[in-house]
Simulated scan of single mutants.
Amino acid sequence: MTSADMHGEVRDPELPGRLLVVERDQLIPWLRGRAEGDFATPADACPGWTVRDVLAHSSAVLTRAVQGRFEEGVFSPESNDRDIAERAGWTDAQVVDELERGMTEAGPVIAQAGGALDGLALGEWVHAGDVRAALGEPEAYAGKGLPHALELLVRITRERGHVALHADLDDLDEPLRLGEVSGDRPPGRYIGDASTLVRLYSGRSVEAAGFELAGVQVGELNIFG
């Protein structure tokens, strides 16, 4: 990331699409090599959902984006459950195929949306981590997409006026400055690794001993909750 990227000063409209394509190239072949029973594994990061449910939700979201179907109430819990139910009769392979198409085709649509859909790409990347975590993969929220995810996270938190945080990452030379500094409070401080930071911002469980956080509460960081 450049200095401007780290400070969320510039929107790269192609970034969400790059993140999706990088994740697609890792996730899809891995999914196609999994046993059928793996898709029925509970996804602890998404209570009540299985791995298949997470994938069906993810593929439905991308399909909606590509088709421009954003009717009232879309992405509510009820809407998400309907999307999953609509795919109940599909094979696991069909769900994965739809996910692959969505990860391939959604980038240009997101790029043209002026930033309104950028968080969708980050959410898809997080859900890929949820699936890997459910199936016991190490570094579930890392991999080749992590630098793109961090860059997107910096800009999204800045644009949303999120609580300011200065993050010193074990695996990055330069610190990240997330959120928007205001006169109301000084920035919080995070010390730890990048994948834990992403989990904090997405409301996923973390090991308390694996990071330091000061000046801000864990619950304040969640951008999806």
Rank of each mutant, 00 (worst) to 15 (best):
151 E>Y: 02
10 V>S: 07
39 F>M: 00
192 G>I: 09
140 A>G: 12
173 D>H: 13
190 Y>W: 06
197 L>F: 07
135 L>V: 12
113 A>G: 11
192 G>Q: 09
104 T>R: 11
134 A>F: 00
219 G>A: 13
59 S>F: 05
98 E>I: 02
44 D>V: 14
223 I>Y: 01
191 I>Q: 12
220 E>L: 03
183 G>E: 13
108 P>L: 05
85 A>Q: 14
43 A>H: 02
106 A>M: 03
83 D>A: 13
213 L>A: 05
122 L>W: 02
112 Q>I: 01
123 G>L: 05
131 V>Q: 05
218 V>C: 04
192 G>N: 09
161 G>S: 11
201 Y>A: 08
161 G>L: 10
26 Q>M: 07
103 M>H: 02
35 A>S: 14
6 M>P: 04
204 R>D: 02
144 K>P: 07
204 R>A: 03
27 L>W: 01
54 V>T: 13
174 E>C: 03
27 L>C: 09
61 V>S: 03
168 D>H: 14
131 V>N: 08
10 V>P: 09
222 N>W: 00
149 A>V: 08
117 L>A: 14
98 E>W: 03
29 P>S: 05
181 V>P: 05
129 G>R: 02
81 D>M: 08
128 A>L: 06
115 G>N: 04
148 H>W: 06
107 G>Y: 00
205 S>K: 13
71 E>G: 15
184 D>K: 11
29 P>R: 00
139 E>C: 10
136 G>D: 10
84 I>T: 10
79 S>R: 10
142 A>F: 08
64 R>K: 13
162 H>V: 09
51 V>G: 04
193 D>G: 13
215 G>R: 06
86 E>V: 09
34 R>M: 12
184 D>S: 12
56 A>V: 11
80 N>C: 12
129 G>L: 05
16 P>Y: 09
13 P>L: 10
43 A>E: 06
25 D>P: 03
85 A>W: 12
214 A>T: 13
201 Y>E: 00
101 R>A: 11
131 V>I: 14
225 G>K: 07
122 L>T: 03
139 E>K: 10
209 A>Q: 14
185 R>A: 15
52 R>G: 10
158 R>G: 03
37 G>V: 08
39 F>Q: 02
40 A>W: 01
198 V>D: 07
68 G>Q: 04
102 G>W: 00
24 R>V: 09
169 L>R: 05
54 V>C: 09
109 V>C: 07
175 P>F: 08
14 E>L: 14
49 W>A: 03
198 V>L: 15
162 H>F: 11
213 L>G: 05
104 T>P: 00
